[in-house]
Design a protein around this nucleic acid. Structure first.
Length: 254
DNA sequence: ATGGTTGTACGACAA
């Protein structure tokens, strides 16, 4: 199974990019974040015309997640049952016998801010939700925009970013806990080298300078046997691109 | 230089 995560930063703007990507790469599953589309206006027909099924959970202006797949999704769950949240950031579904959890983890804005506190509360809830999901499913993938750079090797300029949002010790501790629970960071496991960035700021000419950070991740149970992974960074070089590139993983165990 | 760009929506705010 080939699975991809992509923060598209508005599906209204990026629908043509997504349709072309599906045509070029034909992934089995594509998890999107920041669709910024209410459910009643989701472009379901366009995606189905491309040969994909889709489940989605969105809202106006902010957030929003969707899972596109060749095969049917079952046991679809929007949001975390134990965490009442107006922000649409979680969508779980079972596809090809694999539990897939699509996440858009809060950005947090700045360490110490109110939004940072929300990010930490949100991560507390997600940790509990993930633990429950892992107990229920032997084959599980959690993927999406984590807004966490797990280690200094994931940052173009670690000194500049030290202790900043997405790099603070408290945020990284949540990521480490997911690995300690038995999940594998597929891209890092297959690519120990630096430079596997997934996000480049629109500002400061960051992409041409390769001032990137690795904050989009695919974590999988060892039962899924990730055998190849990478970043489709050419998508960041397209006309009117998202500020994130797709991150893909090929799994032999599903 | 603590800079600047994009999306949403039409003025800020989020990222």
């Amino acid at each position: 199974m080939n699975i991809v995560t992509w923060n598209v930063n508005s599906l209204n703007v990026r629908l043509p990019h997504v349709l072309r990507y599906l045509d070029e790469h034909t992934p089995d599953v594509l998890a999107l974040q920041e669709t910024k589309v209410p459910d009643e206006r989701f472009p379901q027909a366009d995606i189905e015309a491309a040969g994909y099924q889709v489940v989605f959970c969105g809202q106006k202006t902010y957030n929003g997640v969707a899972i596109l797949s060749k095969n049917t999704a079952s046991n679809v769950q929007a949001g975390m049952p134990e965490f009442d949240d107006a922000q649409r950031r979680v969508l779980a579904a079972t596809i090809n016998g694999v539990r897939i959890i699509d996440v858009y983890i809060p950005n947090g804005q700045e360490v110490g801010s109110e939004k940072y506190q929300y990010k930490l509360r949100w991560l507390d809830a997600f940790s509990a939700f993930l633990q429950q999901q892992m107990q229920a499913h032997d084959k599980l993938i959690v993927l999406g925009d984590f807004n966490i750079a797990p280690a200094d090797i994931d940052i173009h300029d670690p000194l500049r970013w030290q202790g900043k949002i997405m790099c603070s010790e408290r945020e990284r501790a949540y990521f480490s806990a997911m690995l300690n629970s038995g999940l594998i960071d597929c891209v890092r496991a297959l690519h120990p080298e630096a430079g596997m960035h997934s996000w480049w700021d629109y500002r400061l000419n960051a992409f041409p300078r390769n001032w990137g950070i690795r904050i989009d991740h695919v974590l999988a149970t060892p039962t899924l046997h990730a055998e190849a992974a990478g970043v489709h960074r050419q998508e960041r070089a397209q006309e009117r691109p998202s500020d994130h590139a797709p991150v893909w993983v090929e799994l032999a165990g599903a």
